[in-house]
Simulated scan of single mutants.
Amino acid sequence: MQTHEQTYFSARGQVITAFFVALVIVLNNQSIPVLKIIRYLGFYVSVAFSWLFAWMIIHFIAWLSKSIDGFPRWNKTYDIRFVMQMIGGVAVPCLAAVALAFGFLEGFGRDFRASGYLTHEFPIICLLILIMNLTYLLLHYRQEANRLADELNAKTGALRKAVLDGQIWKKRTLILKQKLETAKKDAAGISKRLLETENALAALEAKLKVRSGGADTLCELPKLRGFMEIQGALSIDKIPYTEIRYIEYEKRRAWVYTSKSPHFRRTSLQEIQKSLPANWFFRVRNNTIINRMYIIDGPGIKKGRSMEITLRLPKKQTKTLTIHRRKVAAYLEWFSLAHV
């Protein structure tokens, strides 16, 4: 239970309440009729003293209640606040009422014990003090309840708005994801159709022949075009065919060695071979595909029934590969033809 500025009785309310309390104290247990007793000066003196006495107590209770409001540790729970109100607002004023009455009566030469104050006026004063403190407690509890209700309504409204905003953003995010997936599929389809078109065009150009001098001759190799798509960490990398030196399959990965850095694809070498231009790339071994552009010094060197070829690598490096005897004939046929 937090504390904040409470609204209690105003100064005018305290004065009026003290006046009625003074009348009750003076007129209580009087055998003289009211219309007669008001003719005596002593009646007004007693009312004035009782009013001052009651106003001081009421003012003290109001001051004490506001002071307790300023201590958060005394307002943690309603039980603690009730105990502190009873101690400071009831016990202390009752003791003060006894002390003031004792001083007043003894000061005017009257015996305090024989005056009957403890049996007549004091119970009324204690009852009024208790009622006043309970009234302050009820006002305090009511305002605390209203404040907590306002805070709960504000938090509930904010939470409801946050939930609605979250649902809206969730729907928007889902729609954007769907659009992104559709765009990815469309882009993949367009790239695939473009690649198929380029490969078909290359194959068509490779089959064209021109006749010169009564002999069939083949035209120059078509320009190497196209690229290989490889899924990177954040995007799809497009590697031009002209940058691929060779492709080697190792540890269930197809490693594509280029002029810059190697890349890998999680697919078989056979699938990669199908997507490459056959007149430029040849599978010299079960795990290696080479690019015609980077073969050094002709088709290679015969080594018995097999053959060795040398590839040009970046930074003036080379790589020597041995072609198995079963692939030598196919390799020489592929190398000797300008087209497939």
Rank of each mutant, 00 (worst) to 15 (best):
T7W: 07
Q14T: 08
V15S: 07
I16W: 12
A18L: 02
L23R: 02
N28M: 06
Q30D: 05
S31F: 00
I32A: 07
L35R: 07
Y40R: 07
Y40V: 02
Y40C: 01
Y44S: 03
V47I: 10
F49L: 02
H59C: 07
I61E: 11
W63C: 08
L64T: 08
S65T: 14
W74P: 09
K76I: 03
I80Q: 13
M86Y: 09
P93F: 01
A97D: 09
V98H: 02
V98I: 14
L100D: 02
A101S: 15
R110H: 10
F122S: 06
F122L: 15
C126W: 05
L128K: 00
Q143W: 03
E144I: 10
A145V: 03
N153K: 14
A154F: 08
A154I: 07
A162G: 10
K170D: 11
K171A: 15
L176P: 04
Q178G: 14
T182P: 00
I190S: 04
R193C: 06
E198Y: 06
E198Q: 13
V210N: 12
G213K: 12
A215I: 09
A215Y: 12
L218W: 07
L218K: 04
P222E: 07
F227Y: 15
E229M: 12
E229Q: 14
A233N: 10
T242E: 12
R245L: 10
W255C: 11
V256C: 10
K260S: 09
K260L: 01
R266H: 13
R266A: 11
F282L: 08
R285A: 14
G304N: 14
R305Y: 09
L313W: 05
T320E: 11
T320G: 00
I323H: 03
H324R: 13
R326V: 06
K327R: 14
A329I: 02
A329Y: 02
A329D: 08
Y331I: 08
L332N: 05
H339I: 03
V340D: 03
